[in-house]
Every structure is written in structure tokens, then in C-alpha cells.
Computed example of a mutant assay.
Amino acid sequence: MQRRPASASTTPAHLTAAGEPVTVTVARDVRPEQREAFERWADEILGLAAGFAGNLGTSLLRPGPGSTRYHLVYRFADGESLARWERSTERQEALSRVEHLSDGADYARVAGLDSFFTALTPPRPGPRWRLTVLTIAVVFAITLAFQLLVAPHVASWPLPARLLLSATIVVVLLGQVVMPRLSRWLAPWLRGRR
């Protein structure tokens, strides 16, 4: 993610002309005493964005326990629609009222079909070894469960077929079911300092 002044027009040229959907995530660390004021402001700016031509939806993701990070998510039909929103006087005026509520902003953008599948990633990743340990533990658990529950029933299959089934189950469960949930639940540990 990139940290930029909130008042800057931040649409890269390659997204401005793109005819594909664009998703923008703006993460803000809100000062604890300003949470209520920030949520009122977020409702206002998301409502303004929702009224712009080309807007496909907006949402506010609130911080989990022990976090102060809010995520504002905007989806636009294309880079041109996004650029109009980012250059609008309504957005500029709204941004001028948020700086005292939070400590900076991190922007992330995804265009095209990727925007439908991209999850919010921790804006401040912690030590990589933690994600490695978590991944090994999850792959081990899924593989062990496969060996105990499924492998006996497919023992007569050819080795390539058994390996393909095992790999498919591990990858699907790892990427689509287990890791997304564990990454959210364990986010404070994953993002923690060494």
C-alpha cells in the first residue's frame, strides 16, 4: 500500500483510462477519542461517493479488537469514474475535515477482475516468519486430515490421481476457507512486532 496525502488526486494514469471495475481501499488509523466523529464523517463521504456516476458500491469496515484501523472501500465502474470522484470538490471538502480525526491514510487499488477477488491485506504486515509458521501449521492440519479421512478411501487410485486430489483439497481449503478466517482472527499476532 502507498501512503499519500489525503488531499492529493491519487489515480494512476493506467487506471484513469481503464474500462474495467476499480476497487479502492483507504485505511485510516483513527484516534480512539475520535471514533464517533470519524464514523459520522465516513457515513458522509461514503454517501457522497455512492451518489457519483459509475459508483458500484461503498462500505466501511470497522476495526477489530485492539485495532484503530478503519477501511473505507469504494468500487467504481472504471478508472475514469474513479478519477472524477477523486478530483471532485465534494471529496476534497470532506477530506479537509478528516485529518484531525486520524493519523494519515493508506491507499490500495485493484483494477479489473482482480478487484472482485482481492481481500484486504494487513496494511502493516508483521514479521514474515509468523505467516510462514501459520501456513505450515494449516497445511499440516489439512494434509493430516486428508490422510486420515480421505486417503484410505482412495488407496486404490493411481498415485497421480491421489496427489491431484490431495493438492486440490489442500489448496482450496487453504486459500478459500481456512487462511482467510485465520488471517482475520489472528491479525493482531500476524501484524505484531518481532
Score class of each variant (00 low, 15 high):
160 P>V: 05
55 N>G: 10
120 L>A: 09
135 T>K: 09
184 R>W: 10
4 R>S: 08
182 L>N: 06
61 L>A: 12
139 V>F: 05
24 V>R: 11
121 T>Y: 03
70 Y>I: 01
72 L>N: 02
2 Q>R: 13
93 E>Y: 04
179 M>A: 00
57 G>D: 09
167 A>L: 14
194 R>E: 12
188 P>G: 04
190 L>Y: 07
70 Y>K: 01
4 R>K: 11
73 V>Y: 03
85 W>N: 05
73 V>M: 08
193 R>W: 08
168 T>F: 11
60 L>W: 06
173 L>W: 08
142 I>N: 07
157 W>P: 03
149 L>P: 00
11 T>S: 08
92 Q>M: 14
13 A>L: 08
44 E>L: 12
24 V>I: 09
17 A>D: 11
155 A>T: 04
127 P>I: 01
81 S>A: 15
143 T>D: 12
175 G>C: 13
78 D>G: 10
1 M>Q: 00
34 Q>V: 03
125 P>E: 03
158 P>S: 13
7 S>W: 10
9 S>Y: 06
115 S>T: 02
14 H>Y: 13
115 S>W: 01
164 L>E: 09
143 T>F: 04
8 A>V: 12
31 R>K: 12
109 R>W: 15
21 P>H: 02
19 G>P: 01
160 P>N: 04
16 T>G: 15
67 S>P: 07
163 L>G: 01
184 R>Y: 10
119 A>H: 06
